[in-house]
C-alpha cells in the first residue's frame, strides 16, 4: 500500500490556483467580457443622445429603429436579400452535401484521400485568393454582379462544412440501418425518406445553422463578386465599424444578430424530434 505523501508538497503550491473560488472568478470575468460588448451595443441602439465622456446615454430614443423601417433607406430589402441569399445557398448546399457526405462516410474508393483534401481545402485556403482568382472568369461569363454568381461563390465556402458534417453522421450511422431496411423490402427512395433522413436530423440542424451563418456573415466574396449590386447586411454594416452613426450601426448589428438567432432557433425547433437526444456533429 502506497501513501499519498510524496506529492503533497508539490500540490500545496497549487492550492490557490486550483481552488474553486479562484476558478469561479476567472470564469465569471471571462463571461462578463463576453457579454459586455452586447450591453454596449444595446445601449447605443436605444440611445438618442450620448455625448462624449458620458458613461450612459443622457437621452433615450428609437431613431435607429425608425431609420431601419424607413422605406427610403431600403433596409428591409437588404435584410430580404441577405436572408434569401443565405437560405438558398444553405438549401442548395444541403442537397449537394448529403450524397457527398454519404460517399465519404460509407464508401471506400480510389482517390478518396484526394477528395477529402479537396473538401477540407476551402476551410483552410483564404477566400480572398479564390475570389480574386475567379473574379475575371465570372466577369467573362456574366456571373459577376449577379445574385447567381454570389450564390455560387458562397456555395464554395459553405459546402465543406456540410459535406464534413454529413460524412461524420453517415459514418456514425453505418450501413446497418440501410441493410436492415433493405431486408424489410424498402426501395431506395423509401430507405432514404423513412430511415436515413430521420437519422440525418442532427446533421441537418448542425450543418443548416453553420452554413447559414457562414454565408450570412460573408463580406468579402459578396462585395467582390456582387460588385456592390448585391447588397447584404455585412456590406451595409461595413462602414459603420470605423465611423458614421453609431446609433444606426448598433441597430443594424442587433437586427443582424437577431435574424441569425431566430433562424437558429426555428431550425432547431423545426427539425428536432422531441424524443431524440440532441446531438451535434462538428468538423
Amino acid at each position: 500500500m502506497y501513501n499519498n505523501k510524496s506529492k503533497s508538497n508539490e500540490r500545496s503550491n497549487r492550492v490557490i490556483l486550483n481552488s474553486l473560488p479562484f476558478k469561479k472568478i476567472i470564469v465569471l470575468l471571462f463571461f462578463s467580457m463576453l457579454m459586455f460588448p452586447f450591453i454596449v451595443l444595446i445601449l447605443w441602439a436605444f440611445s438618442k443622445h450620448w455625448p462624449a465622456g458620458a458613461i450612459l446615454p443622457v437621452e433615450w430614443g428609437l431613431r435607429g429603429w425608425h431609420y431601419m423601417l424607413n422605406p427610403q433607406n431600403k433596409m428591409l430589402g437588404v435584410i430580404g436579400v441577405s436572408f434569401g441569399l443565405s437560405l438558398s445557398v444553405t438549401l442548395l448546399a444541403i442537397i449537394i452535401s448529403i450524397p457527398a457526405g454519404k460517399a465519404l462516410g460509407l464508401h471506400d474508393f480510389p482517390l478518396k484521400n484526394l477528395v477529402e483534401i479537396l473538401v477540407l481545402a476551402p476551410i483552410i485556403i483564404p477566400p480572398i485568393t479564390v475570389g480574386m482568382g475567379i473574379h475575371i472568369a465570372f466577369i467573362k461569363y456574366g456571373l459577376a454582379d449577379t445574385f447567381l454568381g454570389v450564390m455560387l461563390i458562397h456555395l464554395v465556402v459553405v459546402l465543406p462544412y456540410g459535406i464534413r458534417i454529413f460524412a461524420s453522421v453517415y459514418k456514425a450511422m453505418g450501413r446497418k440501418w440501410d441493410e436492415q431496411s433493405r431486408a424489410l423490402k424498402a426501395k431506395g427512395w423509401q430507405r432514404f425518406l423513412y430511415v436515413s433522413l430521420p437519422m440525418l436530423r442532427p446533421g441537418l440542424i448542425a450543418s443548416g445553422i453553420l452554413m447559414f451563418n457562414v454565408s450570412f456573415s460573408q463580406y468579402f466574396l459578396t462585395f467582390l463578386i456582387g460588385g456592390g449590386k448585391i447588397v447584404t447586411l455585412p456590406l451595409v454594416l461595413f462602414p459603420y465599424v470605423n465611423s458614421g452613426d453609431r446609433v444606426v450601426g448598433s441597430v443594424i448589428s442587433l437586427v443582424f444578430i437577431m435574424v441569425a438567432l431566430v433562424f437558429m432557433i426555428v431550425v432547431e425547433k423545426a427539425i428536432t424530434d422531441g424524443r431524440q437526444q440532441p446531438q451535434y456533429y462538428y468538423l
Binding site: F36, P37, F38, V40, L41, W44, N213, F216, S217, Y219, L233, P234, L237, F238, Y240, V241, N242, R246, G249, S250, S253, F256, I257, A260
Partner: peptide
C-alpha cells in the same frame, strides 16, 4: 458575424 463583433469591440 465578425463584422458585428468588430463593431461591438470598437464601441467598447
Amino acid at each position: 458575424p465578425h463584422i458585428v463583433a468588430a463593431l461591438m469591440v470598437v464601441f467598447l
